[in-house]
Simulated scan of single mutants.
Amino acid sequence: MTASGVSNPVDVIKVRQQLKTQTPGVKANAFWKVGYQMARTEGIRSLGNGFAASMMREASYSGLRLGTYEFFKDRVYELSKGSLSRDSLTLKVCGATIAASIGSFVANPADLVKVRMQAHYPAGKPYRHTLDCLISVWREGAHKQGVSSPFAGGIRSLYRGVEATTIRGIVLSVSQICSYDHVKHLIKKRGLMEEGLKLHLTASLFAGLFCSITSNPIDVVKVRVMNDKERKFKGVFDCVRSIIVKEGPLAFYKGFGMCWARLGTHTIVSFLVFERVRLLFGISPL
């Protein structure tokens, strides 16, 4: 939550960039232009859009994926009956995949509301606050024609884009948590650094870059599907096809600069705070 609070303005600009459907090669989508346009037309406070939803998302998503990572690592190690070593990359990937799958699924409604709150609306913001947005998303599904059950329709609406959210969560967590854990282990094993702030900062820098490269394409699709109120896309794969046909493959890396700035900052702050909290509670470092 601390990391998300620090990086929220960057996250808003990243979402705005990813929602733009421009002709490939057009340079009007630069992060500084998007940020300046927002501050000029919507006010500087617009960079804080979706803050409450972002806090809700992090409490559930990151709380679960970081909080249960080592638990699932231990369970997979026990199930392997010694065939996997404690330091193996395979064990780390399995632990991160299970933890991220659970966290992503639970947090999808908050993630969807965050995207809606951060998007640009030329005719004016349609939501008064986070709860109003959550209710509006529910009603989109509950009042949809052909829905057999309003309750089931509302749930489906809140879980729109859950496939992309879960895939992104797995890719992000595997590339972020595992790379941090593995890089940190290798640096310590070779005697380059000892446990401490410098080691945590170095490992988190590598993790931030790696997870930005791997997760940006999925993030673009997730944002597009979640903000699709008119239901232009039939689903995640239809969105992927549409982006490739209309905008080209490079569109999957729209907003990469801000994605790296956001995820890099988020990763560094997350792990520095995470390691410090562990220390304060007498828990050994990751």
Rank of each mutant, 00 (worst) to 15 (best):
I170K: 06
S173H: 11
S173R: 09
S173G: 13
V174G: 02
S175E: 03
S179G: 02
Y180F: 13
D181E: 10
D181R: 09
V183F: 10
K184T: 10
K184N: 10
H185I: 11
R190F: 15
L192C: 12
M193N: 01
E194N: 12
E195F: 03
E195C: 04
E195R: 03
G196V: 08
L197Y: 08
K198Y: 12
K198N: 15
H200A: 12
H200S: 15
L201F: 12
T202H: 02
L205R: 07
F206I: 11
F206R: 04
A207S: 10
A207Y: 06
C211N: 03
C211D: 00
C211K: 00
I213R: 01
T214D: 05
N216S: 00
N216K: 05
P217K: 07
P217Q: 02
P217I: 06
I218V: 14
D219L: 12
D219A: 13
V220W: 00
V223R: 01
V225R: 04
V225D: 01
V225H: 01
M226S: 11
M226R: 03
N227T: 10
N227A: 15
K229A: 12
E230G: 09
E230M: 07
E230H: 09
R231W: 05
R231L: 07
R231I: 03
F233N: 03
K234P: 07
K234L: 08
G235Q: 00
G235E: 00
G235I: 05
V236T: 14
D238V: 13
V240A: 10
R241Q: 11
R241L: 11
S242G: 03
S242W: 08
I243K: 02
I243F: 05
I244L: 15
E247S: 01
G248L: 06
G248A: 00
L250T: 15
L250S: 13
L250M: 14
L250C: 13
